[in-house]
């Protein structure tokens, strides 16, 4: 019947009209840049030049041979490997504690979520004051322990005898401070996701586990809660990883030049910013971008694979 056929064509046409803007922007803003980064990573292009030379895999060679980039990988992976387990673990711990205590727990939930809402750059500056070697709140608090029983702790003893760490100025501490702020900022987000996950765990399962002899709280957690939180954990770990890879604000705020003492906090996002944008070395910046995308996509694909295969109960 021609009328229906006609209506179908009309619907098809409108459907394309409705998706066209989104489709166009997706290609223009997300896909083309990925291709551009891929292509430019094999060149020595810089903005302002009309031409460029193909340099083969030289940019990638550099990434894997120069010590600067070795430091970049070390800093990035140290950050990810520290922040992800800690923020996931603390998020889960806080969620379990809060979940077990009823309405009073909501106060903690609100407080722990505050850093997620706050502008990270502003909070980074606040932390910088907190960590100021002489007038910062952290070292002042530590100084208060001098002359008390707490001095038996070696760290405090050394601090009292000599001086407390410079924190941000010290290459042994800088990356750990960054990690700490990362955990401080991110664990509340994970906590909220876990709290949502916990509401989905059926009470009957606990009773059943108890009948089967799971008496201690740990047993119940191991047998019921943890498996039931599987899908949440997969998601929380993936999103924490992706966020951790993108750390930038704190580092740029503390060390606008150069990525920290002895480049100990020279993470990938900062490297892209410094090489690609500030120094106009687009080739090397693009190569870092490509590696970055590979890491992130790889992580997300693992997540999707896990979600589809394993964690449905």
């Amino acid at each position: 019947m021609p009328v229906i056929a006609c209506a179908e064509t009309a619907q098809r046409r409108t459907a394309w009209w409705l998706t066209a803007p989104a489709l166009g922007l997706m290609v223009l803003i997300l896909l083309i840049p990925v291709v551009i980064a891929g292509v430019l990573s094999f060149t020595d292009y810089s903005l302002g030049n009309d031409t460029f030379n193909w340099v083969g895999a030289k940019n990638y060679d550099r990434l894997f041979s120069r010590s600067t980039y070795e430091k970049m990988f070390i800093a990035t992976f140290t950050y990810v490997v520290t922040v992800v387990p800690l923020s996931v673990g603390l998020g889960l711990g806080a969620a379990l504690l809060i979940n077990s205590m009823g309405r009073i727990g909501d106060i903690y939930k609100t407080i722990y979520f505050l850093p997620v809402m706050a502008t990270l750059l502003a909070m980074a500056i606040a932390w910088e004051f907190m960590l100021h070697p002489s007038i910062g709140m952290v070292n002042r608090t530590l100084e208060m322990s001098c002359g008390t029983i707490l001095e038996i702790i070696p760290f405090l003893k050394n601090g009292c005898a000599d001086r407390f760490p410079l924190w941000l100025g010290d290459k042994d501490y800088a990356i750990w401070v960054i990690c700490f702020i990362g955990v401080w900022q991110g664990f509340g987000f994970n906590m909220v996701l876990y709290l949502a996950g916990l509401t989905g765990v059926h009470r009957e399962l606990y009773h059943a586990a108890e009948m089967d002899g799971a008496k201690s709280g740990w047993e119940r957690f191991r047998l019921v809660t943890w498996p039931a939180l599987g899908p949440t954990t997969v998601f929380v770990v993936t999103i924490s990883c992706i966020r951790a890879f993108q750390v930038f604000d704190t580092i740029e705020a503390f060390w606008p030049q150069g990525g920290g003492p002895n480049k100990s906090t020279y993470v990938m996002m900062f490297a892209i910013f410094e090489k690609g944008i500030q120094q106009n070395l687009i080739g090397i910046g693009s190569a870092i971008t490509v590696l970055f995308l590979i890491f992130v996509m790889f992580l997300t694909l693992i997540q999707r694979w896990l979600v589809e295969r394993k964690v449905h109960y």
Partner: peptide, 10 residues
């Protein structure tokens, strides 16, 4: 899969 921050340079 593509975080916009990651493709900031291109």
């Amino acid at each position: 899969l593509i975080p916009v921050h990651a493709i900031a340079l291109p």
